[in-house]
Every structure is written in C-alpha cells, then in structure tokens.
Amino acid sequence: MGEANPGVRIDCYVLFESHTDAMDMFARVRSYGVDARISTTPRQARSSCGVALLVPSDQATQVERIAQEESLAYERIVALPCQINPKRDVYC
C-alpha cells in the first residue's frame, strides 16, 4: 500500500460509539461553521470500522467546546498526519 501524503498537515478525527452521535455532531458543528466532513474511521485511529468526523486540527478545540456546551456525545479526538492521497490509486 502506498504511503499517505508526507506533508505536515495534521487532521483530527472525532470518534464515536454510534453513527447517530456522529451525524448529530456533524449537524451541530456545521451550524457553527466548522469545516467538518463525515469520514470512515482510519485504522490508525481505531481497529474497527465506523463513522468518524474529519476536522482541521485548528478547529478541534472549537469542536470540543461545542460538544461540551451542547452535551454532544463522542468518544475521543485523534490527531493524525493527513491520510488522504488522491493519486495513491489503491482501491478496495
């Protein structure tokens, strides 16, 4: 398998115990303008599949604050070097 982009960009993945929690969080943080996207959970973050939220690292603190203020459930936030490489050409 090819390697992820070796750039310095760090992405944060918000992990959840359920996809409903993920979608709730997505809707709320988007309403605050957070650049969040629905994502698969990277294997580097957790060994099981599932829905995660991908947010830029400089917005992770804002996500934590919104989650606390609005009692949104999540498991944890994992910071990883950018996992996305559109020219990797590794398909399922």
Binding site: S39, T40, L54, I84, N85, P86, R88, C92
Partner: peptide, 16 residues
C-alpha cells in the same frame, strides 16, 4: 482485511 482497506480508498476518493 477488507475493512482495513476501506478507509484509505474512501478518503482518497471522496475526501480529497
């Protein structure tokens, strides 16, 4: 094994 490949393919294809 299949589950371990999906996040990479999904990220590269859609989140890019």
């Amino acid at each position: 094994v299949l589950c371990s490949v999906l996040p990479t393919a999904f990220g590269d294809t859609f989140l890019s």
